[in-house]
Design a protein around this nucleic acid. Structure first.
Lengths: 343, 343
DNA sequence: ATACATTCAGAAAACCTTTTCGGCGAGTTT
DNA sequence: AAACTCGCCGAAAAGGTTTTCTGAATGTAT
């Protein structure tokens, strides 16, 4: 009999069972198990043995009911599909797991109604706090004032500056990327980005322009080439730029997909990377960066860290230390073969 | 005042509050809210109004404690990193969300110790059931007989045939892929796969061989070309195969990454796809398939469906209807530009 | 007017744990 | 021997909900 349909008791062991088996009261059993004093060493041992024998696990519901804290949090994501939520979620899950907190996962799939529904369900389960994970860095409407527990917004900050938000520093990322290209000796740098409706795209462009200006330079073509976040756009943009500005020697791409397209186009145009031009991508998406030819340098937003910090802020808020405002975490450049000093 | 630090009561409304406001007993309030009879229509209305005013949400902990059912399940994944767990997880979350069940997410990161720890935590929270999601189709050791709630294994089946497992039909998938190539009129079909240590790789090879045999054919080179799941291997394998078997006209690839490599190599060798050869990938990973040139036909394992069905089976088991055994769900071919009848 | 059925509201128990407080017995002091 | 102190255990309450059962009030039949 390997499964639970057979003889095993359908009911999990309770403290009463343990106490009875150990021959003590439930009060004593509780104290023994929770390491309180007021209990003789020998008695404690008896209780612990009994608990072991019954594989007793204290009922977290009862405990939560009593203490007013459940040790659970809600993780509300707007789309699991996209690749940005997942790392944030992993970071948060990681941080909570270490703190004996369990995580409720809800996917609202970008639907406000569903989101409200999930919030209600989570509150009814008496979560101690909430993390709301978005898929873009554009600010989003807050959940509403009705929520009686602390809320932290991750990646997508809240529109309300009084809320707690953790996100990635897009402007800084743009600066970092360009500075990296500059440090490779590149001077004719083009910026191929995605949909200009994304705040992320605008921020990076701002940072890139700032870094160039600080070096007394400006973008090739005096503009950011906005388009879509796809390989196809990367290919098209690269061809166009090379034709119009044959002296281009650096590409800052808004995503790794775009960068893959740029790399492909450059190869087909007979331009060597990184010999003739350096290319840096964005997102540091392993499957794209390490399989590229050459392997792609990319900006990593440290999304797991965003998730971890969000978890920490939520912890603090639950303990009474609220720190309102938007916290922008720095990104980092992961260097691979596609960027190198001019040879 | 937009946040929860200010005036709002720190305590959520309770049934007692509602009852007091409505001027009835908590028993009556409970019955009114839960739609039981034994309550005059007019009274019910008063109670519901009061509940609304206080934005009352019944304490799920108390309810769970009382009824012995919490309406929660645990979703135990071995790695969130990999791209196979996520869709399964989404499917399950979807199915549960619709059934007013909340999901605890735990990532064991492939570590058995951490897994045990999470199982204990979940049992202590009195989940009604457990779904264990793996990242490979190789059977995995079961959780152990100690678990007093139903368990369903998803994607990675349990080694114990008495457990409930839902996975994808690898053999069938291999057959489907080859049949699709055959239906395009291809006769010289090569199979480029990944790490032969994966059961998935073996199963698909088995299915592919069977389908060819049924057509009186055999694989190009009379073997599956095993390697790694990477683009690099796809490129290398394609070059080798074209050299040794110039008449090859179909490639069944073990992953979309491999397929991308194959496509790249074929283009560089001057072979037109799908003119000279059809190429089919595996996993139907959007970012790879739709950005490929030409867009890549691929086998989709319907992983969301795997997750949904797992959730349904778990539901049934919780309600007492256990259905032991491994259930292999069919895959499907998603046709794009890279496969077409010989022109 | 009496016996009875019917409708609706409330009291109380149960779920399981934690914590406070009272009490009992043993050992110590004078 | 009396008065203490100290260490250890158990009774009981609290937390919020659901459900059963009792009881009160009203309406109906005789």
């Amino acid at each position: 009999m390997t499964n639970q349909t057979s003889g095993t008791p359908p009911r999990a062991a309770t403290l009463t069972d343990v106490a009875r088996l150990a021959g003590v009261s439930i009060a004593t059993a509780s104290k023994a198990i929770n390491g309180r004093d007021q209990v003789k060493a020998e008695t404690r041992l008896r209780v612990l043995e009994a608990a072991e024998r019954l594989s007793f696990a204290p009922n977290a519901l009862a405990r939560g009911l009593l203490k007013g804290r459940t040790g659970t949090v809600g993780l509300l994501t707007s789309d699991l599909e996209g690749r940005f939520s997942i790392p944030v979620l992993m970071g948060a899950e990681d941080a909570f797991g270490a703190g004996r907190v369990s995580v409720f996962l809800c996917d609202a799939r970008g639907d406000a109604i569903r989101e409200q529904h999930h919030v209600r369900a989570l509150l009814s389960r008496r979560v101690d706090g909430l993390i709301v994970v978005g898929s873009r860095t554009d600010p989003r409407p807050p959940l509403g004032a009705e929520v009686p527990v602390p809320v932290v917004y991750a990646y997508a900050p809240s529109e309300d500056p009084e809320d707690m938000s953790i996100t990635a520093d897009g402007v800084g990322a743009g600066r970092l990327a360009v500075e990296h290209l500059l440090s490779c000796g590149r001077r004719k740098i083009a910026h191929v980005s995605g949909d200009p409706a994304y705040k992320a795209a605008q921020d990076r462009a701002t940072g890139a322009a700032a870094a160039l200006e600080a070096a007394g330079l400006s973008l090739v073509g005096n503009q950011t080439y906005f388009g879509s976040w796809s390989e196809g756009w990367g290919r098209g943009a690269a061809r166009m730029i090379v034709e119009q500005h044959p002296d281009v020697d650096g590409f800052f791409c808004g995503s790794d997909q775009i960068a893959r397209g740029v790399l492909d186009a450059l190869r087909e145009l007979g331009r060597d990377v990184p010999g003739d031009a350096s290319v840096i991508g964005f997102d540091n998406w392993e499957v794209l960066t390490t399989n590229a030819r050459p392997q792609l340098t990319s900006v990593d937003m440290n999304l797991e860290r965003v998730g971890r910090i969000a978890a920490q802020r939520l912890f603090a808020a639950i303990d009474g230390t609220r720190r309102p405002g938007i916290e922008e975490l720095p990104c980092r450049v992961v260097t691979r073969e596609s960027t190198a000093p001019i040879s």
